[in-house]
């Protein structure tokens, strides 16, 4: 985990604006951690790893992880899809703005 091609950039990257690169980064991090769901969803464990490893400063803005995981239901079945992951990043972003 984390050893996959997270930092791999697409070759047209140089031309992209910061905003576009930022969006690509958010997507690539999701794909990077969504191993079990083949880039379609994160399991609760994968979500936790992502938040701990990739959001060391903003993780607390996302809220208590245990609660989130519990809300996802059965840990063996639970899936966090891209849209929900994006909303989670939105919470982190709101944390950024408060600073």
């Amino acid at each position: 985990m984390g050893q996959c091609n997270c930092r791999k950039k697409r070759k047209d990257c140089q031309e992209l604006t910061d905003v576009e690169r930022a969006i690509e980064t958010v997507i690539s991090q999701f794909h990077c951690y969504a191993v079990k769901g083949q880039k379609e969803y994160l399991t609760p464990n994968e979500m936790q790893e992502l938040v701990v490893q990739k959001l060391p400063h903003l993780g607390k803005c996302v809220g208590p992880l245990e609660e989130k995981i519990e809300c996802m239901g059965d840990p063996n079945e639970a899936k966090l899809e891209f849209g929900e992951y994006w909303d989670m990043m939105g919470d982190a972003a709101k944390g950024c703005r408060r600073k």
Binding site: A22, T25, V26, Q29, L50, Q53, L55, H57, L58
Partner: peptide
């Protein structure tokens, strides 16, 4: 991290 940078850029 990369991800935090990305969130900050969007903000």
């Amino acid at each position: 991290t990369d991800l935090e940078w990305a969130v900050q850029v969007l903000v």
